[in-house]
Amino acid sequence: MHIHNLSQQNSVLNTFISEIRNVSIQRDRMRFRRNIERIGEILGYEMSKILNYKTVSIETPLGNSSINIIENDIVLCSILRAGVPLHNGLLNYFDAAENAFVSAYRHHTHNPESFEIIVEYLACPNLEGKTLILADPMLATGQSMVSTFEALKPYGAPKSIHLISIIGAQEGVTYLENHFSASTHLWIASIDKTLNDKGYIIPGLGDAGDLSFGEKLQH
């Protein structure tokens, strides 16, 4: 798997990452969502550099201009609910993309420190021969990404796969490397060292879904 860790180079991305991690700033939900969206835009821009392009002629008021534009047939898939702001950021740049949405969550059984990923809702177009962008802001264990991709397989085989996350743990990155093909690309803003005993990223930032939309009731 090709891993593109954007934190290895300094850029304005550092500012947005610092703000979504900051316990004082992240209390502003609108600002938190907007920062997630802006990070999605940066990740999408970096990813766009390796897509396929074709040359087209554009008619301007004063003549014609040749320019290279993306020719990939893109499907953007996000994992609800935390993935919504990230999805919006990517969609700002790939506005012609088709869209897919998956509801996946951690289901704890008897042991609160163990869980399985449950996929309950899925809306997806045909994926055959297309460029799949699978987006989830937090890459903890990696199980959500893998379970989501397994759920998408009946919709066709993508020509290429790009995984996009904002903050991940090294364990999750390794898990993806073991479950996706070598040609898959992972675009990520920062990789943290470890997970705690409940499978949350340390230092991470907390629960991205709760910070975006408010705390959820536990059943």
Rank of each mutant, 00 (worst) to 15 (best):
Ile164Lys: 01
Asn126Tyr: 04
Val102Ser: 09
Pro125Tyr: 01
Leu91Pro: 00
Ala135Cys: 13
Leu13Gly: 01
Thr55Leu: 05
Glu46Leu: 02
Ile20Val: 05
Gly83Ile: 13
Leu176Ile: 02
Pro158Tyr: 10
Leu195Ser: 00
Gln26Asn: 12
Pro137Phe: 10
Cys124Glu: 03
Leu6Val: 02
Ser147Arg: 09
His219Ser: 10
Ser57Cys: 11
Asn99Ser: 05
Ser181Asn: 12
Glu41Ser: 12
Glu37Lys: 07
Ala96His: 14
Asn68Lys: 13
His4Gln: 07
Ile74His: 09
Ser181Ala: 12
Asn52Pro: 04
Tyr155Val: 13
Leu86Lys: 08
Ser190Gly: 03
Ile42Ala: 07
Leu134Cys: 03
Leu43Gly: 03
Pro125Trp: 07
Lys54Ser: 09
Ala96Leu: 12
Asn178Glu: 04
Gln8Ala: 07
Glu113Met: 04
Ser114Lys: 10
Tyr93Arg: 06
Phe94Gln: 06
Ile70Phe: 00
Ser78Thr: 14
His87Cys: 01
Phe101Arg: 09
Ile167Gln: 00
Glu150Asn: 11
Phe149Gln: 02
Pro61Glu: 01
Asn35Gln: 00
Thr55Ile: 07
Asn10Leu: 08
Asn88Asp: 06
Ala135Ile: 03
Val23Leu: 08
Asn111Arg: 14
Ile191Trp: 07
Leu76Glu: 02
Pro137Trp: 10
Glu128Asn: 14
Ile161Asn: 08
Pro158Glu: 04
Asn5Pro: 02
Arg106Lys: 09
Leu176Phe: 07
Thr184Arg: 10
Ile67Glu: 12
Gln218Cys: 01
Leu51Arg: 10
Asn178Thr: 05
Ile36Gln: 03
Arg21Tyr: 09
Leu51Ile: 02
Ile79Gln: 00
Asp95Trp: 04
Ser160Met: 06
Pro203Asp: 12
Met138Thr: 03
Ser24His: 14
Arg31Gly: 04
His4Val: 06
Ala140His: 01
Glu113Val: 03
Glu71Tyr: 05
Asn196Gly: 05
Arg33Leu: 01
Asn22Thr: 09
Gly44Arg: 06
Val102Ile: 15
Thr60Arg: 06
Ala100Thr: 11
Tyr200Gln: 11
Asn178Lys: 15
Phe101Thr: 10
Glu171Pro: 05
Asn68Phe: 12
Ser114Ile: 09
Phe101Asp: 10
Tyr175His: 10
Phe213Ala: 08
Glu46Gly: 00
Ile188Glu: 11
Asn196Val: 13
Leu80Lys: 10
Arg29Gln: 13
Gln9Val: 14
Asn92Met: 11
Ile36Ala: 03
